[in-house]
Design a binder for these strands. Structure first.
Lengths: 160, 160
DNA sequence: TATTGTTATACTCTATAACTATA
DNA sequence: TATAGTTATAGAGTATAACAATA
């Protein structure tokens, strides 16, 4: 188990602990940002995020979010009730529905994204621009390699 | 909103996206590891994690986990029902109870921690040892600075 | 009076299983 | 037959408010 993200880190962090604590810090920051600004949960925020550049079906969303289709159905229900997303019947396959952002949903998603980016910038304040670039480069290589290794999962960008 | 962690990353990731996707990747890895091995949720896993070197009260746990005391009460209920933790009345303050791991809870926490560390090592495989050290150093500085800035929160290591 | 923990209540989130409409 | 989506159901997880016991 990684140590708690919130406890004062020891002088020497292991790589595992540093990554785990960073994960909790960043995800917690996104969660608090979305909740404080608009009362969004982390999952609702992820939903808005994936819909920014896609109009997937319920099944497509389930794959993108790693959830069961029934979970997504309820998730979309609640977002729809708040006026954030809409369901439109698919003309290609009359069993399917396409989920997309409403203008309000898009505006709020953009706002949360901007504020979150500012939060992250603050968190990274202690690093010089050069160090931030180094960090970004290292993480990018890890992410690219991981996506390639598990690429089977989610290349479904054009989903319907 | 950060891009999805699972989608194939673009050639050039922004710093915010790299951090957000890394956070989802690492936290998702821990969640899947704990669920696959023992059916633990992420929160239950965090609970076991903080109890590895503490015997806090319910209130102390609430501060450590960032939850309401009533949430922690239920959380401990469910862990206790599974034989992972115990409640013992505090002698110092008879309103309080001290939560601690059972031997079985400790064994499972240790096992999950070990497997998670192996998962992280695999994920970081693309980096050289030197690069991993650089990454750890940069993240540690960020975490230390953040803990110092918000240190008011949770230095409650000895909690009772 | 203030604090600790529990309980009642309500909501979100999640999965499984059963169902319908369509393919 | 198989797939897309919904619904019923059950459970974890969370917070707020009210409460009993203790400080």
């Amino acid at each position: 188990m990684p140590s708690q993200p919130t406890a004062t880190p020891p002088p020497q962090l292991t790589t595992v602990d540093a990554l785990a604590q960073t994960a909790f810090l960043i995800q917690g920051t996104l969660e608090r940002r979305a909740a404080a600004d608009h009362g969004f949960s982390l999952v609702q925020t992820r939903l808005l995020g994936v819909l920014r550049d896609r109009q997937p079906t319920i099944n497509g969303l389930a794959r993108l979010l790693g959830l069961d289709k029934s979970s997504v159905s309820g998730l979309v229900d609640r977002a729809q009730r708040r006026g954030l997303v809409t369901r439109t019947p698919s003309t290609a396959d009359r069993r399917s529905v396409l989920v997309s952002l409403t203008p309000e949903g898009r505006a709020l998603a953009t706002e949360v994204a901007g504020r979150f980016a500012a939060d992250v910038a603050t968190i990274l304040g202690p690093l010089t621009p050069s160090e931030r670039a180094t960090l970004t480069g290292l993480l990018s290589r890890v992410l690219v390699a991981h996506a390639a290794a598990h690429g089977v999962d989610l290349l479904a960008t054009t989903d319907h």
